[in-house]
Nucleic acid binder design. Structure first.
Length: 522
DNA sequence: TTGAACAGCAACACGCACGA
DNA sequence: TCGTGCGTGTTGCTGTTCAA
């Protein structure tokens, strides 16, 4: 049973892998479709001897086996799979109908281009003239800074100071000759800069650090040109050295002046994130309305431009069970189409029968056939157990399927275990890592097992339902005077849900709902 | 082979104190 | 007034062992 428990624990994708491994390692197992193509004929395989009786000394003396001979059991195992096809409907048509849905669920997305590749492509597309243009711009900025002297440098525009902060001296002393060689070097340095951009789209290291990491170390002004080029690429904001520069770059790209927004980003970003608008207004000496407008514009910027690209490939889930609506209820079908349909090879059965004179071969074949039989039956048992558990879950949580999260009921594994008459560990292993497809989407089976809060009436409300109530309260609150967590506790008490303020706070945080201060609209 | 019993662990819920 | 951190008790899940 340990072994069948092992099969029960596997989700459909792991089971598929396990079956493939078994097919590779056990020649007595074969796919049914392969067998059909080979013209395999089970009926031709006559029962002449069974491994269950092989050890009996006297011929014809059959050891008692309540399950019957191994071959009988093998035949049964094969029939189990034959029975798997829905009755009254050909397996092929049935499969054909759901193929589309399954394909939609399991198809793999085209590999998305990485941010680095996207940026590199844009650099390759740049003409030499565009590179030279940026070189002239950076050179002019350096000349201006040098001309203004130290006092003037301090008064230079914030953006310029931001862009040259890495190299206050080099910009003045270094000169560009605008040669083809320098253009080529700048292009190479663009690749170095791009290489040091993280998945957020931010430059991970200072230009100084990047410079010393290169062999030979390039002139700083060329590295500045490279960064300038990269920061001008799409997506806007890429190559910023932190959130502040990232946002400023996006404002600049708009080719309009946003002095208030820039000051807020530079001086009050932390206050802005905590919605402390009055403090910002007071600090900048402007009206709250202006701050609100500025906040709206800043909120429209993308703080993580790199997140639009690549990253981890999406994780596709193959549901292990599918809940389908039937007249007035839900019916669960365990999804078995990902796992090859198995059977025990008639050729090896025949070989086993003929191996009487070769004890070594016979012993070997018996072991393989036993394993094959066990696997076929264990998979069958897994399907049955999974079907029962999933059906019970769907029966209990049908309110959720009909009406949504607010109707999710409190459900413990022990409840389902009691109903099905199995041990709680069977439920735990049965749902582990498995998903069920419902009309509301694909959910981990664990999702349906949830604790909750006890109401004063003695009823229990599921955690998800309590969270939904909190969300509803917040949705309806006066935005100028949002509900504090204590106020939410009081409102929950009105509907007989008694949980502490701390619990409300935890729920709110889990749902990434801002605090009342942060929600307040001025 | 099955499931009961147990221990270990993690998550949850709570109270309290403290600081903004 | 509210958010946050910490310590503690409770609950449920999981892994392991062992007896029937």
């Amino acid at each position: 049973m340990y072994m069948s428990m092992e099969i029960l624990c596997l989700n459909s994708m792991d089971l598929q892998e396990r079956v493939e491994t078994e097919l590779e390692n056990n020649e007595t197992l074969e796919r049914q479709e392969e067998a059909a193509a080979d013209g395999g004929d089970d009926a031709a395989a006559t029962q002449t001897e069974s491994p269950a009786t092989e050890d009996a000394d006297a011929p014809g003396e059959v050891a008692e086996d309540p399950l019957g001979s191994l071959e009988e059991r093998m035949e049964r195992a094969d029939r189990y799979y034959d029975d798997d096809a829905p009755h009254g409907r050909s397996a092929s048509s049935y499969r054909g109908e759901r193929d589309e849905k399954l394909e939609a669920m399991s198809n793999t997305a085209e590999r998305s281009i990485s941010l680095q590749d996207y940026l590199e492509d844009q650099v390759h597309m740049l003409s030499d003239e565009e590179v030279l243009e940026t070189m002239r711009l950076v050179q002019a900025r350096g000349d201006d800074s040098a001309g203004m002297g130290e006092a003037s440098v301090a008064g230079a525009t914030e953006v310029d100071s931001n862009r040259t902060e890495e190299s206050p001296a080099e910009g003045h002393s270094q000169q560009l000759d605008f040669s083809d060689e320098q253009v080529k070097v700048v292009r190479e340095l663009c690749s170095s800069v791009i290489f040091n951009i993280d998945e957020r789209g931010y430059l991970m290291y200072s230009l100084d650090e990047i410079r010393v990491s290169l062999e030979p170390a390039p002139e700083m002004i060329l590295l500045e040109v490279a960064l300038e080029i990269v920061q001008d690429l799409d997506p806007t904001g890429v190559g910023g050295r932190g959130l502040e520069e990232c946002l400023i770059l996006q404002l600049e790209k708009d080719r309009q002046d946003y002095p208030l927004e820039e000051r807020i980003i530079r001086e009050y970003l932390s206050e802005l994130s905590h919605n402390r608008l009055p403090k910002i207004a007071k600090g900048l000496g402007v009206g709250i309305e202006d701050i609100k407008d500025a906040k709206e514009l800043i909120a429209s910027l993308n703080p993580l431009p790199g997140k639009l690209f690549g990253g981890e490939p999406p994780h596709y889930i193959k549901p292990d069970a599918i809940a389908e609506e039937v007249e007035g209820g839900y019916e669960v079908r365990v999804e078995s189409s990902y796992t090859p349909r198995l059977r025990i090879s008639p050729q090896y059965r025949e070989l086993y029968r003929q191996s009487r004179k070769d004890p070594e071969l016979k012993k070997y074949l018996k072991k393989k056939l036993d394993n094959a039989e066990w696997l076929v039956l264990a998979i069958r048992q897994r399907q049955a157990t999974l079907q029962k558990i999933a059906q019970e879950i769907v029966n209990i949580q049908s309110g959720f399927l009909d009406h949504g999260i607010s109707h999710l009921k409190v459900l413990k594994m022990v409840d389902v275990a009691e109903i099905l008459g199995v041990h709680v560990s069977t439920i735990s292993r049965g749902i582990s890592g498995k998903h069920i497809q419902t009309s509301r989407g694909i959910y981990p089976m664990k999702f349906f097992f949830t604790g909750g809060a006890t109401k004063s009436s003695g009823d229990v409300e599921a955690r998800g339902s309590v969270i939904q109530r909190i969300k509803d309260f917040i949705e309806e609150e006066d935005k100028e005077s949002p509900l504090s967590d204590v106020a939410i506790v009081e409102k929950l008490k009105e509907v007989e849900i008694n949980i502490s303020r701390r619990t409300v706070t935890k729920y709110r945080e889990a749902e990434a709902i801002p605090s009342s201060r942060e929600r307040r609209e001025y």
